[in-house]
């Protein structure tokens, strides 16, 4: 029986329509954002332990980093 390939196994190729350049005056490469901006546009790949809920874990991260809004990508309760 043919299996569906999981999305993380799909290899994509970039096809060019037109050549272009980008002006270094505007924006930043994701890894070169100023620290405060880097955090605000950041994600933590967290190793959740058993016990606290996903929601509680997110609240702790928020408090540790002194941020105002923190979310999570899907609860780990079900």
């Amino acid at each position: 029986m043919p299996r569906t390939i999981p999305p993380w196994k799909i290899k994509r190729k970039l096809l060019v329509k037109a050549e272009g350049t980008t002006d270094p005056k505007y924006g930043h490469k994701p890894n070169e954002r100023p620290a405060e901006e880097y955090i605000r546009y950041g994600i933590i790949n967290l190793d959740k332990t058993s016990g606290p809920s996903s929601h509680e874990v997110a609240a702790w991260v928020k408090r540790i980093l002194g941020l105002t809004q923190v979310g999570h990508g899907g609860t780990l309760e079900v």
Binding site: Y41, G42, K48, L67, Q69, G73
Partner: peptide
């Protein structure tokens, strides 16, 4: 439950 839980900041 444990494991990978991505946390999205701001």
């Amino acid at each position: 439950m444990t494991g990978v839980l991505p946390i999205t900041l701001e």
